[in-house]
Amino acid sequence: MQDEITKHSRKIYKTLKNSKKPIIEKSKEIFIEIFIIVFSVTLSIWLHSWTQEKHQQKEAMEFLIDLKDDLNKDIESMSKKKVQLSEAIKQYSYLKNLTKERIDSLSNKKQGIDIAVSYVIRKTNNGNYEGFKSSGKIGFIENKKLKKMILEYYQEDVPSTDEAEKYYNSRLSKIEDLIFQDKDKKKKFLDPVLKMSFGVVIQIAENNKRNYDAVSKDVREIINEINREEKK
């Protein structure tokens, strides 16, 4: 491009220096050369912008395809944690409703009372998102609706879900402290503090299950929107 501009600039200079040509003819030739320069520069800028935009779109689509895999893993992870929470609700509901008579009956039959404390350990698959965001390329996603959905998921849904899981685990820790106190079985499982803790954990578990459902729904909508982008 630089060579072309230089070549046409020299023609303009030669035309100006040529004293044998009439002014009208000079003006026509100079106008043509200037037009060629302006057109060439404009075309070059347009081609560069078009190429850059195509490259950005390609990068964005590659990111979205990788992100879709991450999102599917997140849905699977939340589904597994829902099962875990359902089992916890069933177990703690049973323990919460234990009566003195039921505990005596189990003792007479020499049956133990099973209890497990299973913390929710889950990690969001956010490596691709964090890498793309930190490189400043989120703006490459031209679909504004999709971009907004992705940002809301990682900046709002994920942090709130993490906090809900942390709170659930903190309440489980309270239960763990209570059940390992040096008390006899009857006194331990009739302890109103422990029963209240079971009730709190059950409620939190129910809330977290509903949250997993809501977030999973949002994630599926993101995946569906990515699928639509792939078909364009």
Rank of each mutant, 00 (worst) to 15 (best):
H8P: 07
S9K: 12
R10F: 09
K11F: 12
I12W: 11
K14L: 15
T15D: 00
K17Y: 07
K20E: 14
K21D: 01
I23D: 00
I24R: 09
E25H: 10
K26F: 10
S27A: 12
S27H: 11
F31H: 11
F31M: 12
E33N: 13
E33Y: 09
E33V: 10
I34S: 05
F35V: 04
I37G: 03
F39W: 08
F39T: 15
V41T: 13
S44C: 10
I45P: 01
W50K: 14
K54C: 07
K54L: 14
Q57F: 02
K58V: 07
A60N: 02
M61R: 07
E62W: 05
E62K: 04
F63S: 03
F63T: 13
F63C: 03
L64T: 03
I65S: 01
I65V: 11
D66G: 08
D66C: 06
L71T: 08
D74A: 10
D74G: 11
E76V: 04
K80D: 08
K81T: 02
K82W: 01
K82P: 02
S86M: 10
E87G: 05
Y92N: 08
Y92Q: 05
Y94G: 02
L98T: 12
K100I: 11
I103R: 02
I103A: 05
S107R: 13
S107P: 04
I113Y: 00
A116V: 01
S118E: 12
Y119A: 03
R122Q: 05
T124H: 14
N125K: 12
N125G: 07
G127M: 08
N128D: 04
Y129F: 13
G131N: 09
K133R: 08
K137S: 02
K137H: 03
K137Q: 02
G139H: 01
L146M: 07
K148Y: 07
M149P: 08
M149F: 14
I150T: 08
I150K: 07
Y154M: 15
Y154L: 15
Q155L: 13
S160M: 12
D162L: 15
Y167N: 10
N169Y: 05
S173M: 06
I175K: 06
L178M: 09
F180S: 09
Q181P: 02
Q181R: 04
D182H: 11
L190Q: 11
D191Q: 03
V200S: 04
Q203T: 13
S216V: 06
S216P: 06
D218W: 01
E221M: 05
I226D: 00
N227W: 00
N227L: 03
R228N: 10
E229L: 14
